[in-house]
Amino acid sequence: MIEIKDLHKSYKMGSNSLHVLKGLNFNIKEGELVAIMGSSGSGKSTLLNILGMLDELDEGSYTLDGVPIKNLNETKAAQYRNKFLGFIFQSFNLINYKTAVENVALPLYYQGVNRKERQEKALKYLEQVGLKEWAGHLPSELSGGQKQRVAIARALAAEPKVLMADEPTGALDSQTSYEVMDLIQKINDDGNTILVVTHEPDIADMCKRIVHLKDGVIVEDKKVDQVRASQYV
């Protein structure tokens, strides 16, 4: 599903250049649940942004579902993001003046899905994350965990090939974190490919594979026995 070859990325800051990713190689197959681990500043978000087509790589190649991702113009990148990817952010990034169901329906709007179908689908995914009763509520009326579940429903709504979560539990207490991870595991059980960026080992252990980043290189890439989050909820 995802193929990365010799990926390099630097940030230029004035005359200095910060080499953040220094030649990464890895593949992710369909249905995997991968944790990208590493301490703060190790380049996890940079990697995820490149994979999410929110940023461009300097060197190397990136292929997503057989499509080489390079030299995309803005419109094309928008199309690919919409078609291939679902994002889950640490700070939820819901649109604050839209209700839960409207937030979930937004990627469908950009897919050109008609109003009625959008509403139906959005409600279906809200139900899947257990928030159907909260459909008409604004983000400000939801708890942190509920917000993240709305964000997950939104990411799912577009029916993407890959879900990308950057520190999805970073703003949540541990109990809520486990609830969110439980949801992510269940979505993965349905066959969805998911990447989770985290610096918390217990969250990483709830994935099926851990890619460990340190100073811009992969120091470890291992399969793990998944710890099910359901036992904590």
């Binding site: 993001r81 649109i95 990627p107 950009y110």
Partner: peptide, 12 residues
């Protein structure tokens, strides 16, 4: 930014 991440084109 959110809209763009969700697939909004510049034109939109």
């Amino acid at each position: 930014g959110i809209r763009k991440a969700l697939g909004a084109k510049p034109k939109q």
